[in-house]
Nucleic acid binder design. Structure first.
Length: 103
DNA sequence: CTCTTGACGCCGG
DNA sequence: TCCGGCGCCAAGA
């Protein structure tokens, strides 16, 4: 199976769409789940082609997102009852982190 | 080809 | 807990 850049984008977006409401994955989680180690590369894909996918379900390892994005994401977290921590300033990774293998 | 730029992550202080 | 520094790796200039 030969994988080009296009396929990798498809794999990332496909996995992101599978994340259940109220749960999240870190950029690194997405990368390792697909067998890579470039978390930044996942971030780059999200920044460029994440239209149409639940982008707010992919956060940093510490449960945060860049300020401008966090502002928009909070509304979704409220909808999906995503567990937050630190006074609503970050996702509670211990409870919200999803295991792609367990499904 | 070299240098800069990130929706990242780990390690000190 | 909150920065700052450094490594990482593909894309663009």
């Amino acid at each position: 199976m030969i994988e080009g850049p296009e396929d990798r984008v498809e794999q990332v977006l496909g996995l992101v769409e599978d994340i259940p409401p109220g749960r999240v994955l870190s950029y690194g989680d997405v990368a390792s789940a697909l067998g890579w180690r470039g978390a930044r590369f996942v971030g780059r894909i999200m920044a460029h082609g994440a239209e149409g996918v639940p982008w707010w379900r992919v956060v940093r390892i510490d449960g945060t997102l860049p300020a401008p994005l966090w502002t928009r994401a909070v509304a979704h977290y409220d909808d999906e009852d995503t567990p937050l921590a630190a006074g609503g300033r970050r996702v509670d990774m211990r409870r919200a982190r999803w295991d792609p293998r367990a499904g």
